[in-house]
Amino acid sequence: MTTFIHRRTGVSELNDLIRSAPPEIVQLGDDHRRSLAARFRAVPSNGHRRIDSWNVERAGQPAHAFRWSPATARRTLGNAALRRMLRDPLCSVIDAINREIDDQLMRDVAGYAQRGSMASWFATLHQSELALVKADAANWTLQMHEIALSIEDQWSVCASDAFYDVARARTTLRGRRDLEVVLEDRCVLLRIRSGSPGKSSGPGLRSDLTIATLAHPQGIAPARMIGLWPESGVCLGVDGTMSDLRAGARDLVRTAVAQQRYHQSIAA
């Protein structure tokens, strides 16, 4: 039986949701990893496969070609700016974002930025376009900071998303995560989302939960994965139970199968 919790994003509701995370610690072992790899290997692939919760929520439907925009850059830029603000409390949001953008531009000038990267995209932008990117990132950072400050337990901004390479299956799984809350011997992960949750948000959160567990060196599952939709004032949660992890893994494999079918239909 999988879990699914729905709450408003008030300060007390969010803290209750974090603290009521199940105390049991669930762990994925080598057998689980081998079994998952075998299932992915059984799905033929034309090239290297990348699957994340967005693919799961879209049931493997091919998305539009990725292009950088203020909306696609705001999370990366905003999270980095928040980390910078936490290191230097005197730094304002706009200063932090400006410094992050300066760093990215420096990488481009130094030749370290790859073609198509955020840094190389910044280098092509006019000042007014860059200002719009800053405005979107500022919204994200302030929102994240407000949510983080409302958490009563120890929290940190995640340094990166969770990545897991499935052995010999040419598949990389990417689990998104923004904040990590530490509760004694276990942790709760939070993910901030735009818009409103849809019918497939639960499977999306479960896949993020599964990928975070697979990416953990000891395979320890987060006690709870919480998705926050501040625009709607809603948060949803899934628990780190074995049935939720299995459901998340099943959704990931199904997405790989659906992707393959779409590729075949396009090729035909």
Binding site: P70, S128, A131, K134, A138
Partner: peptide, 27 residues
């Protein structure tokens, strides 16, 4: 509205129409 967004981050606006139009076309 795009100009308000640019104001919010303290952007220097050299040409109101061009800057707003560029910003709008970006998204």
């Amino acid at each position: 509205h795009e100009l308000v967004r640019l104001f919010s981050v303290g952007a220097e606006i050299s040409s109101a129409f061009d800057d707003a139009f560029r910003a709008w076309q970006l998204e």
